[in-house]
Every structure is written in C-alpha cells, then in structure tokens.
Design a protein around this nucleic acid. Structure first.
Lengths: 193, 193, 193, 193
DNA sequence: CATGAATGAGAGTTCATTCAT
DNA sequence: GATGAATGAACTCTCATTCAT
C-alpha cells in the first residue's frame, strides 16, 4: 500500500472517529462511514472489511495520541503536587469534552465483544493512569506534600471516580460545577488545597 | 385494555428485559424481542410500537422494583453505621451481577436519546441514592459514629466511584477482590472499619 | 406451514424450474427467481434460503414426476420387445425436449458440488434406468425375441449413448434425424427392427 | 502487438485455463482470472475485455493442441485394428483425466451461448473424431479385421457413448472399471478382442 | 504497457411494518 | 386479539469497468 493509500486510510479513520463519537459503536454501519467520508460503497472496502476493523484502528490511533499527551504532561523540576494539579486539570479538560469522546463507543465495543483482559484498550489506559498516579502520590507522600495511607488504592479510587463522572456526563447531564466539586474533593482527600 | 392484555404486556416486558441485558439497547431489534417472547410478529405490535417503547416500560418496571428494594433495606432501630454497612453490601451484590443488569442498555439509551435532566431514570436513581446516603452520613456524623466534613459531596463521591466500578465491570474484567478493595476504602474514608 | 404456504412453495418451485432450465444452475441468482415469481425480495426468503435449496426442491419434485412416468410406462400383457419400443419412444420424446430440461442445470449442480455417490439424483436415475432396461433385455432374451450376450453392459451402453445424445443436444445442434438414427441403431444392436 | 505482448497473452490463457477447469464457464469472473494470473485489474483488460473472450482463446489453443495429438496418434504400417486400439487407449486416457478437463466449461459455454452449428468447437471435435473413426472402421472392414454393417453410425455411436461416459465422469462418480467395461464392449461390438 | 484506486451496479440478506384472515 | 405472510427499505459485500498516474 502506497503513501497515498496510507493517507486515505488516515482520512477514513478520522472521519469514522466522529461517526463513532456520534453514534456509539454497535449501531454504526459501513454506510454511515461511507457517507461521512464521501467515498463510494466499494471504496471503503478497499481499506476496511468491517466497522469493527475501523473501530480498532480508530482506537489504536487514539492510544498513540493519548501517549503523546502523557509525555508532554510531565514538567521539569516541578513537585508531585504541581504535577498532580496538572493531572487533574487534564482530566477535567478531558471530562469536559467527553461528549466528543469515543468513551461511549469504547464502552459499547468492549461490552459487545467481552474480550479477556488482553487487548483491552480501556483497561490498559486505566491501569496506566493508575500506575502513573500511584507513583505521583508516593512521591508526594515522601516529600510530605500530601497524605495517603494506601497510594495505590487511593489512585484507583480517583480513577474510578473519574470513570463514574465520565459515564455520568455521557448519560446524565452533569454540569462543570459538579465535576469541579468532585475533583476538588479528590484533591482534598490527598491533603491538597 | 383487559386483565389478560396486562398480563401479556408484563410477559413481554419480562422477556424483553433479558434481551436488553444481553445486547444493550441500540442493537436490539423487534425481531429479537419477538423471538424471545415466542409470539407472532404482529402480536408484539399490538402492545408496543418500537423497541424504545419497550425499553421505557422495562425501565419503569425496574424503577418500581428498585424502590421496593430500598424500602426493605431500612431496619428498625439500627445505627447509621449499621445501615451504611447494609447499603454497601447491597451495592456490592448489585455490582457483582452487573453483567446481568440493564446498566449498559440504560447507558446506551440515555446516550442515544440525550434527554434533558427530566425523565432521566439514571439521574433519578443516582440522586435518590445520593440523598439517602447523605442523610445516613449526616446521621452517622451526628451520632459520632463516622466522620465526614461534607456529607453531600462524600455521598456523591461514593456513588461516582460505584458508577465507575459498574462501568469497569461491564467493559474491563474487574474481579470481586478489586471491588471489595474499593468499597472497603470508601468505608474507611468515612472513618468506619 | 399451512396449506397455502405449501401452495406458494410449489408455485415458486415451478417458476424456479423454468429459470434453471433457461440459465443452468450456477448463474441463477435469488433475484432471478424473485423476478420469475413476481414476489418481493424478502418474500422468497420466507420459503428458501438459497438457490441451492430451491434447486434441490426442484429436483425432488422432478424425481417424483419421473417415478410416475416410469410406472405408467409398463403395459399389461405386452412382450419385452413391445415395452422396449415404448421405452425408446419415451427416451426419444424426452431427448427431443431436452432443451426444456433441467439436464444442464443438474450437470452443473453435480459438477459444482461434487457429492459422493449418495444423494446423487443423476446417478440414481441412471441406475434405475439401467436396471429396468437390464430386466427388459433379459426377459427378451429368454423369450428369444432379442439378442444380447451381456444384458447389463448392453443396457449401460444404451444409457451412456442416450446420455451422450443428451449432452449433444444441449451443446451441439443435433437434429431429430440424428437421434433417430442412433436410437434405431441401438435397437438393431439388440436384434430388433 | 509485440512479441512480449503475445507471451503475456499466452500466459493469461494458460492460467485462465485452469480456472475454467475448476469452476466451469459461467461462474468464472474476471477477478478469478486476475487472481490466478497475479496481474493487476487493469492489466487483464489490456488483453481481454471479458471472460467470454478469454474462454474462446482458451478453446482455440485447446483445438491446436488436440490436432497435434491426433496427428501423432497415427503409426506407419499398422493395421486398422492396431490404430483402433490406440484410439481407444487415447480416449480412455482422456476420459480418466476428464476432471482436469475443459469439458464441463465447454458444455456450459455452448449451452449459454447456444451458437449455431458454425463455430462450435465441440461439434467440430466430435465430427472430426467421427470421421476419423469411420475411416478406420471402413479400413478394418475392408481388411476383414473387424465387422460393422454401418461404419458411420457405428462410429457415431462410439463417440456418443464416450460423450456419455464423459458427462458421467463429471457428474456421477464413474470408476475406471466402469469405463473399461464400456470401452471393451464397444470394441467387442466391432468384432475385436 | 501496467498498475491499482475508485466507482457504482447489483446480488445477498435481514427486519420493521402492514394487513388480510 | 392474534397470526404470520408479504413487502420494501436498508445494509453488507463483490466485481466489472474505468482512469489517472
């Protein structure tokens, strides 16, 4: 597959991404993607054989982007508390545009395919976040900046709460205020602010 | 509509419930329900015009059952701490059979229909739980049994965490252990155990 | 399936039969049958899931008809020679409307599906004819009406020749004369005419 | 068209031949040929506009090869009986690899296109064989080596039987034994063996 | 010459919905 | 009320054919 082909594939993934954001995973049809891409029926099949394949590629790309975000988040000589604040700010930002997220589609995907622990993008993301957070908290505790008896569980709880907020945003009408309140409370629980 | 009609409707709702549990909301077809009910194509249309109507009825029935559960949960002369433990036990039980829940279907439904705050079953359930929990915590604080600076926010956080665990169960492979750990941690946060 | 359903199925088989006669087996599409039957796209699928199923039903019906023909062919107190003449006349009649036959479709079907000896309609028909013919010849030989050293092989040869004439009719332009000549010659080989 | 072009055309015909052997005529698609040749979609169209054109070329080449075979079959000072035996041996050999033959495809082709007597490869082949056979038999009769009252019709009958065996091989499961038995019987009919 | 991306027609299949019985 | 046959819209997928490179 040539350079141009690769570009087209990227283009399709980009367009399809929006479709998955709008309609979730299960109810997206090849036709939806075709229409979104303004290509012909057969055209899409040159690149992808099914919506599942498309979705997996969308996820893969999402993962790469997510990794980038993580790496840029780390400052130079900032304290654990500083980084934590940044982390929470980033989480808030992500939450606020959750409506424009693949979150729901991803939930649907893993509910539909019930795959084992392996190859589960959601779990990978979740665990990576928990691990990073745990290290941060441990650093903060060592430095005496913040307080947590069980950093790992605290980190998990933070992430579950954020996950709860996410699904709340997707299905109830959470306001920015409500989110702020919760994130704040989580920070307080670590002895910050 | 006669007595018999009412019975049939109930029967359909019951059977449809399982279908929504298995397949979520969006990808359920009238045919799925027809097959599950072993009735004729035309038969279903006598009672429901669409899967949405069926799902709403399923939800309505679910709500009634849920209310029943809540009312039976409250003991007589038990302390707030006792009731809290019961509440957490009930939450754990519900979480453990989340796979056999309408949770995913409900998420999908509200994501698909993005209804305003009104008529949102999820939010109603959530807020009712938060309110009950808040009162419990307040009672416990008054009695000196437990500790919480901001009972309302604490209650919300507990519920968001539980919501996070729920979606985690549906899409990742959370173990009972992981759930226990989190619920325990929440209770500890209230100064219990 | 009700009485009416059975009738419709018969109707479809009848119409489909002509399609198979016209187009053979492999290139017949569900659409072809739908058009021939003047029914809706979905309608056909209520009765048959594929052209193969339809063709098998067509064949089955064909077999029943064929059996009927055989049984009516036998006279009362006629000699073997008489019956043989009848048999050849019947074969000639069948050959002459071979163009309106399922022969080619059947050939294609068994070429495409290469089934083992079992369930092979062609072979069954062929062997039944050989057996009947063998018995006739044996009777004739006993009665001194005709001559054949190896009745079974003679019968087979007659049937292979007829098979050869059939494919000749389907693919070259055999004339009635050419057929007559051959059938005559076969009879002569048995010492008749 | 250059030398190289000619070579490529030959290559395509060769590869396509196998496709026609495997799938018959009607259900072969341009894509089948493209895949078999490992050339580009556009590439094939440079040489052939349709499967029909390809098949005709395949047949043409087949004819040339067939002619070659015939010419090499004739010995020097051998008797008619000798040559007949050779002829039957050749027929048997051809029959035995009928499965790897274009026979079925050719049948399908002429059934699909129902061309008049002209340009019918099958008929040409058939008639050429009949003529050669007739001459052989006449020679044999003159030399007193074999017996036949009507050499032409006898020759035709032999060829029809062979044709019948051929279609039998393609669609029923004829064994080598069954073929032998028939070929033998044909020779006996001529007073040989 | 040769490639393979692109298109769109058309076949296969499923289902929501209607309607005569 | 209840049935299930019938329809047609919508979706999936494949391929003949064209065309820019």
């Amino acid at each position: 597959m040539g350079e141009k082909s690769q570009q087209k594939k990227k283009y399709i993934i980009e367009k399809a991404r929006q479709v998955f954001i709008d309609k979730g995973y299960r109810s997206v049809t090849m036709k939806d993607v075709i229409d979104a891409c303004n290509i012909s029926r057969g055209g899409l099949y040159l690149y992808f054989p099914s919506t599942q394949e498309i979705f997996l590629e969308v996820l893969k790309q999402e993962m790469e982007v997510a990794d980038d975000v993580f790496s840029t988040q780390v400052g130079e000589d900032s304290t654990a508390a500083d980084i934590l604040e940044l982390f929470f700010a980033a989480q808030k930002a992500e939450l606020l545009n959750t409506k424009d997220n693949l979150a729901m589609a991803t939930y649907e995907y893993y509910y539909a395919h019930k795959p084992d622990g392996k190859d589960n993008f959601l779990r990978e993301q979740f665990e990576a976040a928990v691990e990073a957070l745990t290290q941060l908290i441990e650093m903060g505790v060592e430095d005496g900046e913040l307080y947590a008896e069980e950093p790992q569980i605290a980190a998990e709880q933070i992430m579950y709460t954020i996950e709860g907020l996410k699904i709340g945003l997707l299905t109830m009408k959470l306001t920015e205020e409500e989110i702020d309140k919760q994130l704040h409370y989580l920070l307080q629980g670590l002895g910050l602010e």
